[in-house]
């Protein structure tokens, strides 16, 4: 099982990194323009290309990069000469903190909303909550972010609009700087999570074992939280997994909007700078993250629903 997973991880990693290598090589322009500036002579560029091994055939370059990857060396940025691993290590905590905080916000809102709506399915509270989540679902995350900035940073001036304070510098400032981005990202996901949970909970509450739990004289609260919630969580877990997997490199909108130095922005900047090695490093990080998150989700499935133990 574990061995099979590792093989899959390796296959995914090989294919994905090769494809991105190929894709990047198709881009017009190369790092020399960025490093030497537009005015540099063609000879100087040729010289630099040789130094950077950019004149080797694509496949040779890929193999040598792969060799580096095997030893944990992802190379150094063409433009800043910072080792790629270092650059990623610097950016990853920002993205991770954002994602985790956003999931906390999303679940903290979605579970009560979903549960409340499911318990009163079809009644006014449910309809109001359903409408609310529909509205949230239809608000693009950058629109929501702009609105929140408008309200909290511009009008009320209680939270900073942009900027990042590392957790190692000051915990309080760190939390303030992550709050607005996390709420923005979290709210957008709240809608999805709450709707999934509501639908599954309504289905679960109609199951025989719930009616029988009522017939055993158990209190509604106990039935809801101990009997119904766990069997209703599968879709929710799937959605969380998909989100985490996609957002490791895809929280770029939030990072741009709030000026956070995260992985997503690093990749975007690196592509514009034709900084292939940094982009490649980002690609490795994202695909490994994606596979790991999937693996973790499968583990959680088993913990939540013992029926999924095989396959």
């Amino acid at each position: 099982m574990i061995a099979l997973r590792l093989v899959r991880l390796l296959v995914v990693l090989l294919v994905v990194t090769f494809l991105s290598f190929l894709l990047l090589s198709l881009l017009p322009g190369d790092p020399t323009t960025q490093i030497l500036g537009l005015s540099a002579s063609e000879e100087a560029r040729e010289q630099l290309r040789r130094e950077l091994n950019l004149d080797d055939p694509l496949f040779t370059r890929y193999l040598s990069w792969l060799g580096g990857l095997a030893t944990g060396d992802l190379g150094a940025s063409y433009t800043t000469s910072v080792p790629v691993t270092e650059a990623l290590a610097e950016r990853l905590p920002v993205t991770l903190e954002l994602l985790i905080a956003a999931q906390l916000v999303a679940l903290g809102l979605a579970v009560p909303i979903g549960v409340a709506a499911a318990r009163r399915a079809g009644r006014p509270l449910d309809q109001a909550l359903t409408a609310l989540s529909f509205g949230l679902l239809s608000t693009p995350v950058f629109v929501l972010g702009v609105l929140l900035i408008l309200v909290f940073a511009v009008k009320l001036q209680v939270l900073p609009a942009t900027g990042w304070t590392s957790i190692s510098v000051d915990l309080g400032w760190n939390l303030t700087s992550v709050l607005l981005p996390a709420i923005t990202l979290g709210c957008a996901q709240t809608a999805v999570y709450a709707r999934l949970l509501r639908t599954d909970l309504i289905a679960t509450l109609q199951e025989d074992y719930i009616t029988l739990a009522r017939a055993r004289g158990l209190s509604p609260r106990r039935i809801l939280w101990r009997h119904a919630l766990r069997p209703s969580a599968i879709s929710l877990i799937t959605a969380i997994g998909l989100n985490l997997g996609a957002l490791i490199g895809g929280a770029v909108i939030i990072e741009t909007l709030f000026g956070l130095p995260g992985v997503g922005r690093l990749i975007v900047e690196s592509i514009f700078a034709r900084d292939y090695l940094t982009v490649q490093g980002g690609v490795v990080l994202i695909s490994v993250g994606y596979v790991l998150v999937n693996f973790a989700v499968d583990l959680v499935y088993v913990a939540v629903d013992p029926r999924i133990r095989r396959a």
């Binding site: 994905v16 996609a246 490199g249 592509i271 994202i286 695909s287």
Partner: peptide, 19 residues
């Protein structure tokens, strides 16, 4: 399909648009 899902969408989009 699984491999396609693991490929970073952002990198793909940026690369194509840049190219």
């Amino acid at each position: 399909n699984d491999i396609a899902l693991a490929f970073p969408a952002l990198v793909f989009a940026l690369a194509v648009v840049a190219f």
